[in-house]
Structures are given as C-alpha cells and as structure tokens.
Amino acid sequence: MPDALTRFLQPIDAFGRYVLLMAHAFRSVGEFRSYRTNLVEQMVRIGIDSIPIVALAAAFSGAVTTVQTAYQLVSPFIPRSIIGSIVAPSMILELGAVVTGFILAGRVGARISAELGTMRVTEQIDALEVMGLNSVGYLILPRVIAGVLMFPALYVLACFVGIGGGMLVAELGGFLSVGEFVQGARDFFQPFDPVFGVIKSLVFGFLITSIACFKGYFTAGGAEGVGRSTTQAAVLSCVFILVADLVLAYTLL
C-alpha cells in the first residue's frame, strides 16, 4: 500500500523538484559574471552546431509534404498553387517547430543530461558547490537561456529551408513552378502564423533544455544512472513537446 502511494506521488514530487530547480536557476540570473562564458559556449553548441541537422530535417519534411500534397490533390478543378498554400503554413505552423523540437530533444536534450549526469556522478557538481559556486546558476541557467534564445532562430531557419525544399521538389518534380508555389503561399499567409511558431519554439526550447538539465542534475547511480537520465530526458522532452503543441494550438489559434 505505501508502495502504491509512493508511485502515485512520484511524478508530483518530481514536478515539485523541477519547479524549485528552475526557480533556483532564475534567482541566480544576476550572477552574470559567473555564467557568461558558459552562455556563449552553450549558444554555439545548441544553436550553431545544430544548423546542419535541423536544415536537413526541415528540407526533407518540406519536400515530403509537397510531394504528398500534390499526390492528394490530383483534380483539374483545384489550382496547383494550392500546394504552396498548404505546404508553407504547415511548415510555419507545425513542422518547423516540431521537427526542430524532436531533433533537438535527441541532440541537445540527450547531450545536456549526459553531460550534467556525468558531472553529478563524478562529483564535479559537488566540487563546484564546495568551492562556493552556485552550481545551478553556473550550469543550468546558461543552458536554458541558450535554448530559449537559439530555438526560435533555428525555427526560422527550418521554415525557410523547409519551404525552399518544398519549392525545389515542386519545380524539379514537375508538380508546379516556384512562381505558382509562392503565389499560393502568399494567398493564404496569416501574419500571426510565424508569431505562433516563434512562441512554440520558445516553449519547446525551454522544455527541452530544462527537462534535460533536471534529469541530468539529479542523476544518481553511476554510469547506468547517466544512461537512464539521458534516455528519460529525450523521451520526456518528446512527450512534453507533443502536449505543449496541442495546448498552444488550442489556446492560441
């Protein structure tokens, strides 16, 4: 019976510790001198180093969406430019942020939690603390800030590359010309769509980095524990991306 109760309380306990950890992190926001170098390094590692894989994934998702939309709309009564009207908003509203999010949940989330988890089990975090440094401010804050700053940038990149990929396939595959594609995209363009996408990517960036930091920071149990938190960080981030995606779409659209 106490076992069942413990299991029931576990997620609540974890959520509580997560909130406290983030509060602790953001309370130390004023100690900029101590995490300045880390912030720059993390922005490079999260942002710049992710460009190739994000661009690749975005290009392919734009291209695939184009091919499949063309396949579904084989009617002489529908203008072909409608393909552009479907692909561009799909990219801006959904795919740009979600594809970036999933890729980075694996790439960035797993890396952060493996890194912090290793620092925990090898007592490097304890070493920071006993020096008198605020390990949460020093390690977690720069990673979360870098995530929140770099995700929207990667999202914008993903949108451009994804739509570009769609156009390229449309032209090369003989579905429709770039001109028609652009025309279609313009006809149905909503200025709020990219704003919504940026909000989503901000949220995803926060979720992925903060969950990974949480899992990594509280790692226990040696190398095995590091493996466990790394997997959990990637899986949890993906789940929370899906949930946040739905919640944001429901509340903001």
Binding site: T122, E123, Q124, D126
Partner: peptide, 14 residues
C-alpha cells in the same frame, strides 16, 4: 564554503 578546499575521492576535475 569558500574557506574549504575539498579533494574528492575521484578527483572530480572538470
């Protein structure tokens, strides 16, 4: 804590 120096079991070098 700043008055302490600690040598951890495994060194704990960064």
């Amino acid at each position: 804590r700043q008055q302490f120096g600690v040598l951890f079991q495994g060194g704990a070098l960064f």
